[in-house]
Simulated assay, not measured.
Amino acid sequence: MADIVPFPRTPRPSDPEPLWRHLLGEQLRRRRHDRGETLTETADTAGVSPQYLSEVERGRKEPSSEMIAAIAGALDTSLIELTSAVADELRTTSVPASARASVFALAA
């Protein structure tokens, strides 16, 4: 029998990478909460319905760039600041492709 070698469990290469819309929604909700605003207040400023903003924040909608820009503006942030924050979060939560490849090579 071979020895069993434990591998770290987090992050696991088999875990799916987070979706952009989920991280975007989390970022929008965090910024709205930081401002102490309700869904209705932010949605009114952005020109969208509170239901739509709620779905974007929960990662259920894939908003257009125009919608993202409108919501970002309502939160007094720029599209580039918001996009950079989401990209930074993706970098910290994603498993690099090189790490996935090396694990698959070990398992083969």
Results as ranks from 00 to 15, higher is better:
38 T>C: 05
45 T>M: 09
7 F>Q: 14
14 S>R: 13
81 E>F: 01
11 P>L: 07
32 R>E: 02
12 R>H: 14
43 A>N: 00
31 R>G: 00
16 P>T: 03
5 V>N: 10
15 D>E: 12
82 L>P: 00
78 S>T: 09
14 S>Y: 13
5 V>M: 11
10 T>Y: 13
16 P>Y: 03
95 V>E: 06
53 L>K: 01
28 L>M: 06
98 S>R: 15
91 R>Y: 13
35 R>H: 00
47 G>F: 02
29 R>G: 05
36 G>T: 00
47 G>C: 03
46 A>V: 06
16 P>W: 03
70 A>R: 08
30 R>C: 08
102 S>Y: 09
26 E>R: 10
7 F>H: 15
67 M>G: 10
104 F>W: 15
82 L>I: 03
93 T>Y: 06
42 T>H: 02
71 I>N: 04
79 L>Y: 07
33 H>C: 12
56 V>I: 15
14 S>W: 11
82 L>Y: 03
75 L>S: 00
108 A>W: 15
28 L>Y: 01
72 A>G: 02
8 P>Y: 04
49 S>P: 06
35 R>P: 01
1 M>T: 11
74 A>D: 02
8 P>N: 10
1 M>L: 13
23 L>I: 09
75 L>P: 05
75 L>M: 02
4 I>M: 14
9 R>L: 13
70 A>P: 06
23 L>D: 03
69 A>D: 08
74 A>E: 00
108 A>M: 12
108 A>F: 15
95 V>S: 07
69 A>L: 09
71 I>M: 05
49 S>H: 11
20 W>G: 01
6 P>H: 13
89 E>P: 05
88 D>R: 09
45 T>H: 06
28 L>N: 06
103 V>Y: 07
28 L>P: 03
32 R>L: 02
5 V>K: 12
44 D>M: 04
62 E>L: 12
50 P>M: 10
101 A>G: 10
29 R>F: 01
99 A>R: 12
20 W>T: 02
24 L>C: 05
90 L>P: 01
10 T>A: 12
24 L>H: 00
91 R>M: 15
37 E>D: 11
50 P>Q: 11
89 E>A: 14
64 S>K: 09
49 S>C: 09
45 T>K: 10
96 P>M: 08
49 S>G: 14
40 T>P: 00
17 E>P: 08
6 P>Q: 13
14 S>K: 14
102 S>I: 14
31 R>S: 07
106 L>N: 10
72 A>P: 00
5 V>H: 14
19 L>V: 13
67 M>C: 12
43 A>K: 02
25 G>Q: 05
81 E>Y: 08
16 P>E: 09
58 R>H: 11
91 R>S: 12
38 T>S: 05
36 G>Y: 02
47 G>H: 08
79 L>W: 08
85 A>M: 03
46 A>M: 08
66 E>C: 09
84 S>P: 14
63 P>E: 07
44 D>Q: 05
12 R>N: 15
47 G>V: 06
85 A>Y: 01
89 E>N: 15
53 L>W: 00
78 S>E: 07
72 A>Y: 01
30 R>Y: 10
79 L>K: 04
70 A>N: 10
18 P>N: 01
56 V>H: 02
4 I>A: 13
7 F>N: 11
47 G>I: 07
